[in-house]
Design a binder for these strands. Structure first.
Lengths: 141, 141
DNA sequence: AAAAATTTGGTTGTGTGCAATTTAATTTCT
DNA sequence: AGAAATTAAATTGCACACAACCAAATTTTT
């Protein structure tokens, strides 16, 4: 039996796992006085694109379930970045909307990706290729 | 001010973050009766390549620190997959070695990557490209 | 309309991740 | 040799992540 596939360096999964964590660390370093975490930043990005979404729809967009989102959104609410409102039309759903403070954060947030980008040695073409292949990977798994 | 870089679909980081979690979920689904998690599986892979490593060296290989590894290794010890031994030569270091049970697991583990691989629609060339670009990304950040 | 199935968000419990601090052991400096 | 610096694990505290389960509201079936 050949066990080469069990070598770390032969796997595709391991470097993706490492990259993901390094990205999160990178963001968290630059957030500084924004006082948010990477998953919270993702929620904000979703809301900056479309304000007032249900928990469910945010989850679909970010591939996260309520077990992760409910406490995360409560922390964001206590920081006054968002407001949680149970819908009148359908009492099961909770609508999440940005506060002014949450909206304001966009101006600071926009400066962060370029700071991270300068540490990346990939060419623009390589980045496009990487993005395309990663999307091809996740859309099937 | 152009806020396009804050759109989720324009980012490289987000799909990597999603891919990482989907990979972990995929592995955890297939582990089943092996009763291990993906990070525990990574530790086993390290030890299958080189048995008897220090916590520090495992951490370097996996990019994980002692705050993560110490409790993780204790869980693995309680499952009798590994043994933790404080070194005689240097009392600061703890040497981790596989038990027979930990060594045995390799035979079952080798069947898992092919099961995951069948869900991947990338061509072998695309996988190589993806791996190369991901490594280029993490070796700089 | 009443029962059954589905949907939505919440809760619980376990397992990572990681920053920051601590403790003990070893090495380096003077 | 003794003090200072360094190193290795462990500890603490917080924030995800997710499986499994639950309760309430809504929709579908009969």
């Amino acid at each position: 039996m050949n066990y080469d596939i069990l070598k770390l360096d032969n796997q595709l999964c391991f470097p993706i796992y490492v990259a993901s964590r390094e990205i999160i660390q990178g963001y968290n370093r630059y957030f500084g006085d924004l006082d948010i975490t990477y998953p919270q930043y993702l929620v904000l990005m979703v809301l900056w694109e479309d304000d007032e979404m249900t928990v469910n729809n945010i989850g679909k967009r970010l591939h996260l379930d309520s077990g992760t989102l409910t406490p995360l959104l409560k922390r964001m609410e206590s920081k006054e970045l968002i407001i949680r409102n149970r819908s009148r039309e359908d009492e099961r759903t909770v609508k999440i909307s940005l506060t002014d403070k949450g909206k304001q954060l966009k101006q600071k947030a926009v400066k962060i990706p370029p700071q991270l980008a300068k540490d990346v040695t990939l060419t623009p073409e390589e980045i496009e290729t990487l993005k395309r292949l990663i999307y091809k990977l996740i859309n099937k798994e």
